[in-house]
């Protein structure tokens, strides 16, 4: 049997920057982002794909970066939470999270923001129900979701 491929060079765009990087074949995308690229805003909250703290955008769609290998992202365009604010200016959603107290410990926040940003891109004026469906794959243990839902709805209204 041939020796399996143990590492590979991948080429990805991360927050608009083109990156080539050698990665072990087994490395999770989330660990590539955190450990290799130092983008520590993307978090790990579980080991079963349930919590959503590691949510990033892959070619515009929200994905859980703990459920993909880094090599699977080869050729993709990735956006992480660090890629939301431009030149230090918060997005309307980030601002709404701040104003509505939609975060406490802040650990789930990056994943929440990425799921909700994707929602607002496809549905700029979501209802409360739309928001709850969109973030159902993201666990928050601090807020009971009340203010998160409120913030996303408000960001949608603000964008009107």
């Amino acid at each position: 049997m041939a020796e399996p491929t143990r590492s590979r060079t991948i080429s990805v765009s991360v927050n608009g920057e083109q990156i080539e990087h050698d990665v072990p074949a087994r490395r999770l995308l989330v660990h590539f982002l955190r450990d290799d690229l130092g983008l520590t805003g993307t978090h790990v909250g579980c080991d079963t794909g349930n919590c959503g703290a590691c949510t990033v955008h892959l070619d515009g769609a929200p994905v859980k970066s703990c459920m993909l290998l880094a090599v699977q992202a080869d050729g993709a365009e990735l956006t992480t939470v660090e890629g939301l604010a431009q030149n230090g200016e918060l997005t309307a959603l980030q601002q709404a999270f701040h104003e509505h107290h939609a975060l406490q410990c802040g650990y789930c926040t990056p994943g929440m923001l990425m799921s909700a940003t994707a929602l607002l891109e496809r549905n700029p004026h979501p209802t409360e129900e739309d928001v709850r469906v969109a973030i159902q794959g993201n666990i928050c243990r601090c807020t009971g979701y009340v203010n998160i839902v409120e913030a996303v709805v408000a960001a949608g209204k603000r964008g009107a």
């Binding site: 520590t40 939470v81 980030q94 701040h98 104003e99 975060l103 802040g106 926040t109």
Partner: peptide
Amino acid sequence: QSIPRKEDERLVQGLGTFFDD
């Protein structure tokens, strides 16, 4: 007063520092 939190600015940008970072 319900002053919005000082902690938020870093946390909403993924710029918080947790021990694993």
